[in-house]
Amino acid sequence: MAISNKIGLSSDEIRHGVAGALTVLKTWSITDQQILAILGARDLNELKNWVTGQVRNFPADLPHRIGLVSGIHAALRQRTRDNDHAAHWLGKPNASLEGKRPIDVMTGGNVIGLMLVRDHLRGGSSR
């Protein structure tokens, strides 16, 4: 669901935000499909366009998704500095997330899953 850039972000701002999010996501040892779902990209070509700054349109919630990835990363880093441990935590069923793996909650297709994981890590709830 691409929209025109009505919030006034430059292609450089999108490029840098997406590049930063990708740097974090790659430390989590997740698949390209999971990355697409987390950032809300339709396919790898769209993601590549965001990274190279060749973007005129992007999902309205992309900046929010980037911020949530950053928040999840920061909260994970408070728990552990070990990327393997963080990746293990993301892939392990969690009773506080209805028995689902955090990565599955985050890749559910909308920002609410990202918010739930971030808030869980921070010790709060977004419900």
Rank of each mutant, 00 (worst) to 15 (best):
residue 79 R to S: 05
residue 79 R to W: 10
residue 79 R to G: 08
residue 79 R to L: 00
residue 80 T to L: 02
residue 82 D to C: 05
residue 82 D to T: 05
residue 82 D to N: 15
residue 82 D to F: 08
residue 83 N to L: 01
residue 83 N to Q: 05
residue 84 D to L: 08
residue 84 D to M: 04
residue 84 D to Q: 13
residue 84 D to S: 13
residue 84 D to C: 02
residue 84 D to R: 10
residue 85 H to A: 14
residue 86 A to S: 15
residue 86 A to F: 10
residue 86 A to L: 13
residue 86 A to G: 14
residue 86 A to C: 14
residue 87 A to H: 12
residue 87 A to P: 15
residue 88 H to L: 14
residue 88 H to M: 13
residue 88 H to Y: 15
residue 89 W to S: 04
residue 89 W to G: 08
residue 89 W to H: 05
residue 89 W to D: 07
residue 89 W to F: 11
residue 89 W to A: 09
residue 91 G to M: 05
residue 91 G to V: 00
residue 91 G to T: 04
residue 91 G to F: 02
residue 92 K to V: 12
residue 92 K to M: 03
residue 93 P to E: 02
residue 93 P to N: 01
residue 93 P to G: 00
residue 94 N to D: 10
residue 94 N to I: 04
residue 94 N to L: 07
residue 95 A to Y: 11
residue 95 A to N: 05
residue 96 S to L: 06
residue 96 S to H: 04
residue 96 S to D: 07
residue 96 S to T: 06
residue 97 L to H: 06
residue 97 L to C: 06
residue 97 L to A: 04
residue 98 E to S: 09
residue 98 E to A: 03
residue 98 E to C: 07
residue 99 G to Q: 07
residue 99 G to R: 09
residue 99 G to E: 08
residue 99 G to C: 03
residue 100 K to W: 14
residue 100 K to L: 10
residue 100 K to Q: 06
residue 100 K to G: 09
residue 101 R to V: 09
residue 102 P to L: 01
residue 102 P to Q: 05
residue 102 P to V: 06
residue 103 I to V: 09
residue 103 I to R: 02
residue 103 I to L: 07
residue 103 I to W: 08
residue 104 D to A: 10
residue 104 D to L: 08
residue 104 D to C: 09
residue 105 V to W: 05
residue 105 V to H: 12
residue 105 V to Q: 10
residue 105 V to M: 09
residue 105 V to F: 14
residue 106 M to A: 13
residue 106 M to V: 08
residue 106 M to Q: 13
residue 106 M to N: 14
residue 106 M to T: 14
residue 107 T to D: 15
residue 107 T to A: 15
residue 107 T to I: 11
residue 107 T to R: 04
residue 107 T to P: 15
residue 107 T to N: 11
residue 107 T to S: 15
residue 108 G to T: 02
residue 108 G to D: 11
residue 109 G to T: 09
residue 109 G to F: 07
residue 109 G to Y: 06
residue 109 G to L: 06
residue 110 N to E: 07
residue 110 N to S: 02
residue 110 N to V: 09
residue 110 N to D: 14
residue 110 N to L: 05
residue 110 N to M: 01
residue 110 N to R: 01
residue 111 V to I: 12
residue 111 V to L: 11
residue 112 I to P: 03
residue 113 G to N: 06
residue 113 G to R: 00
residue 113 G to P: 07
residue 113 G to Y: 06
residue 113 G to I: 04
residue 114 L to R: 00
